[in-house]
Simulated scan of single mutants.
Amino acid sequence: MTEAKTTDKPRSEEASVPRARTDTSGNAKNLVTSKGTTSIDSGVVAKIAGLAAREVSGVYDMGAGTARALGAVRGIVGGEKSATQGVSVEVGERQAAVDLDLVIEYGVAIPDLAAGVRRNVIMAIERMTGLEVVEVNIRVDDVHMPGQGEGERGRIEGAEPEPRVQ
């Protein structure tokens, strides 16, 4: 550890203090300063990304098939759906990268949806953490069809399904 140096310089000349990047509004995000370091756990960034992605209209659910199945089981036994389902992140001292698995609503333009999700996730992470988001990779795993899944919930287990034709 290095010793702190004392100087008789005015505060205006102390501009050489290392600082994290500055966002577009000009507010310094002091993650690494001469006074200490603020570290943000990857779980926090993943939760922010998951919540921000779900805010975008056209996102039905998140996660690959297995993750969604486990989330459904968790819901049946009274657990809450995880905000980080379908999200993986890498977090460094000043940057973050995000991977998202999405299930989209049928009829939504995928390029437009991806751009909206990407924009919302980047804005939320950068605003809340001060980390620079270097990439948001989006993988569309499935398309939710209107009425899909709702009929299954109301069915009695073990009952014969209704025939498609008569």
Rank of each mutant, 00 (worst) to 15 (best):
R68G: 03
G58I: 03
E55G: 03
G58N: 00
S57A: 11
S57C: 02
V89C: 02
G86E: 04
E55W: 00
K47G: 06
E55C: 00
V77P: 12
V98R: 05
L70D: 14
T66L: 15
S88N: 14
G92N: 12
A67W: 01
L51A: 11
G78R: 09
V45H: 07
T84M: 04
G63F: 06
G65P: 07
M62W: 04
K47L: 08
V45S: 07
S82Y: 09
E80F: 09
A69P: 00
Y60C: 01
R74M: 06
R94N: 14
L70Y: 14
R54K: 14
A53S: 10
G50K: 13
T66A: 14
A83P: 14
V59W: 02
G75C: 06
G63T: 08
T66V: 13
A64E: 06
A46E: 04
A67D: 14
V77T: 05
V87W: 05
G86T: 05
V59F: 04
A49F: 04
A72N: 13
K81F: 07
D99M: 09
V98P: 14
K47H: 09
G63N: 02
L70H: 13
G92E: 09
V87F: 03
R94P: 02
A46V: 09
Y60F: 14
A96E: 07
L51D: 03
A46M: 05
L70F: 14
I48F: 08
I48A: 03
A69C: 00
G71R: 13
Q85N: 15
S57K: 08
G86C: 06
R74E: 12
R68N: 00
V87N: 03
A69M: 12
E55A: 01
Q95S: 14
E93N: 15
E90D: 13
G78V: 12
V45Q: 00
S82I: 11
I76E: 10
E90V: 15
A52C: 04
G92R: 11
G78I: 09
V73N: 11
R74F: 07
E80N: 05
A97W: 01
V56R: 08
A69Q: 11
G86F: 07
A67T: 15
E80V: 05
A97E: 15
A69Y: 10
A69W: 09
G71P: 09
S88K: 13
G92I: 06
S82G: 06
V73M: 12
V89G: 02
E93Q: 13
T66R: 15
E55Y: 00
A69N: 11
D61P: 01
V73C: 06
A52Y: 02
A97F: 01
R74D: 13
V89Y: 02
A72M: 11
A49G: 04
A53H: 00
T84Y: 01
A83H: 13
G71S: 15
G79L: 06
I48E: 00
T66K: 14
A72Q: 11
D61G: 04
V56E: 10
G92V: 08
V56M: 01
R54T: 01
G92A: 08
A53I: 01
V59G: 04
V56T: 07
G58W: 09
